[in-house]
């Protein structure tokens, strides 16, 4: 109750795979976190704008379509334009290992792939928020 971590879970572009994003939303809720879900087919810019209004700690983006190397840079660009530096960007879905390395270098805090157990997802979110500190 006192924790109050807010997470926005998003899907961007044409990617219609929404099982993973729903699984993640549910496991965060069951751990006591507040989750905003924006639905399918949003633009990277829209989900950033929503994340700013919702003042979330974490923006979680689920991508299984292979569009991650264009979507994440657009998201980071928008975050910068909005002057927001304390929203933690988290990724997941189907993403090749070499792209994971590249995306983390660009500033995505963490990327969790297929078959990540719920407790690892929850622990990762809590750890990243703790490391960022109060704001």
């Amino acid at each position: 109750m006192a924790e109050n971590i807010r997470v926005l879970m998003a899907k961007v572009g044409l990617d219609g795979h929404d099982r993973g994003v729903r699984v993640v939303a549910r496991c965060l809720r069951d751990a006591g976190l507040d989750v905003v879900y924006t639905g399918l087919h949003r633009t990277p810019e829209e989900v950033v704008d929503a994340a700013v209004q919702e003042d979330v700690d974490v923006l979680g983006v689920s991508l299984l379509s292979g569009a991650h190397m264009t979507a994440f840079p657009r998201i980071m660009k928008r975050l910068k334009e909005r002057g927001v530096s304390d929203i933690i960007l988290l990724g997941g879905g189907v993403i090749p290992d070499e792209d994971v390395v590249a995306l983390k270098k660009m500033g995505v805090a963490e990327i969790l792939l297929q078959d990540t157990p719920p407790n690892v997802i929850v622990d990762t979110v809590r750890r990243l928020v703790r490391e960022r500190g109060a704001r």
Binding site: R29, G32, D34, T38, G39, E45
Partner: peptide, 17 residues
């Protein structure tokens, strides 16, 4: 759990931007 999944924004996508 005290947690929530809030999905109202899904229906408000026309207001984005």
């Amino acid at each position: 759990s005290g947690g929530s999944i809030m999905g109202d924004r899904i229906r408000m996508s026309d207001l984005a931007g």
